[in-house]
Structure formats: C-alpha cells, structure tokens
Amino acid sequence: MTESILEVRDLVKYYPVTRGILFKKTIGHVQAVDGVSFDLHKGETLGVVGESGCGKSTLAKVLMHLEHPTSGSVTFNGQDIYKLGASGLRRLRRNIQLVMQDPYTSLNPRMTVGDLIGEPFEIHSDVAPKGSRRQKVQELLEVVGLNPEHINRYPHQFSGGQRQRIGIARALALRPEIIVCDEPVSALDVSIQAQVMNLLETLQNEFGLSYIFIAHDLSVVRHLADRVAVMYLGKIVELGTEDEIYERPTHPYTQALLSAVPVPDPNSRKNKAIIRLTGDVPSPTNPPSGCRFRTRCWKAQEVCAREVPLLEVRSGSDHPSACHFAEKREIMVTREAGELTELPTRTL
C-alpha cells in the first residue's frame, strides 16, 4: 500500500444550537461530524458517500479548514493542519484544494474567467511572477478542455459543465496534491457528467492527484473511487475498497443504500430486492444512543442501543464495518463492463 498523504483522526464538528437574540443560550449541538478517522493515500481517490444530512459536506469544510473542528486532528505532511499559523495555513491552501458542487454559485459572477483562474496566483503571489500569469491561466484553460481565448468571458456565458471545468482549473492552479471534490458532478446533466468525470480521471493520472470525492450518487463514486467510506449521521459506518463495499457490503445501512440505487437495466426489475428502510434519518441534534442506525435497522438488538459499534474488522467481514452484526450480503450482481457500442459509420 502506498504512503498516506493525509491522516484524519477522530474528527468531530459540533455546531451549537442557540436560542435567544441578545443573550444566546446553547440548548444543544448538531453533531454534524462525530469521530471520523481515515487515511488518504497518495494518488488514490477516496469516495465518501451518504445521504443528505450525514455530515459529508461538513467534513469537506473541516478538512479544508474552512471551519475549525470541535476536536480531532488532520495530519498533512507530518503536521496537524489545525495547529498551523497564518503562513502555514497559506502554504496548506496550495496543497489542498476544493471543487464545489454548484457551478452556478461557486464562481463570482462579476469576475472574468481570467480573473477567476488567476485569483490563486494573486493570492499566492510568489507562485507565479506577474507577467506569466495570463499565460498560466491560458494553459490551465487548455488543460481542462476550454478554449484559452475565452479568458475575458464571464461565468454566465458558459454552460454548467464548462463552469465546473473553470472551477477545476482554479483548484488546479496552485498544483495541489489533494483535491476535495464536494459533489462535483451532481448538478450536471448526464452527458456532461461523463465529460467531467473523465476529466477528473485524466487530471489525476497526469498530476498524481489524490481526491477526496464526496457524493451522494453511489454509481458515480463506484466509477471513480479506489476506496469508499459510507457515512451515516456523522459517522463512518463502513470503509473499504470499491470491491469490498459494492460487492461484499457488511453494514446494514450500506446494504440498504446499495439496494435502493436504480440500475439502468429494465431486466433487473425481476430479481431486484430493495431493502426498505422505514422512517426518516433521526435528527443529528439528538442522535440515537449506541448505534445511530439502530432506529431504522432490521437487525437491531438490545446491544445496539447500549454500545456504540466501533469501525473495525469483525469475523463476518474482511474490512472495517461499524456494526455489531456485520455480515456479508450480496446486494447486486456486478459484471465486467462491456466495450462501448461500435457505431456504424459509412463513408460516402
């Protein structure tokens, strides 16, 4: 296994819930991220999947040091990023970058593409001397597959997919080692999604990037990720390689999640057994005791309410799973992908 580039340990982020306007009183905490640990290896893509409200976006913000964690540490290059001073933090920004979900809101509408992609160079002015910036911006545009002559256009003159490319070019400008992608393709149309995913793959190979790829779409994550972490209510419930998660899931939540993903093949209707989850996701302000999934779990026993299941390898599984009763279960049949259809072309 390759060396880890980022080590996340027991990361916790609570948001206080306050009442009162002048004299604020804390009446509880939203436990958005609660004890998340994982390693990111060099050159790999770690997928983080979960449904809305599971804390995956908060995780992105805390990893980017846009929010300070309640506790826990993230070690990059042997240094805890939360203990860095201002200059250390600036250096860190060069190495960890962010691509956001919504290409419509993540670009300042009043800046041209040149200004947007050039902004990283202005902030980190020692990276590129002033004269070379324009050229660098044009190179970046080319790298992400945009026309370098469009440097003076505004974001609204581009389509969603093109804007996402601008966002990627911006993240790439400082040649980071890690890019945190927060739902980078979920706002895009199907045919455009594939273009951006292919671009992300190409860039990874070209620049040796490591991705933390946060998404709710399990198919997208399977396509891109080497390893996958499944989150539920602020905790990682299962962590494993792509095969381990998709072919041999052991946590009941992962199993339910996988079974609910619609497969684009009408013939799968016959042999499909969706595991129905009842009820809603509990509030992160007041999560259930013990295992957080127990209120919706069909395997729940008395021990689940009492003891928090640790994320560890158990007898029933070959990878860490946070379930007292972790057990393999095949949810769907994976097959090797075929070739793309050969389209008939005629020469006239």
């Binding site: 933090l89 970058q97 962010l98 300042n108």
Partner: peptide, 8 residues
C-alpha cells in the same frame, strides 16, 4: 467559500 479555500 471558494475564495476562502484559496486562502483569500
């Protein structure tokens, strides 16, 4: 947020 992530 994006600008902040760049270190602005």
């Amino acid at each position: 947020v994006a600008a902040r992530a760049l270190g602005a």
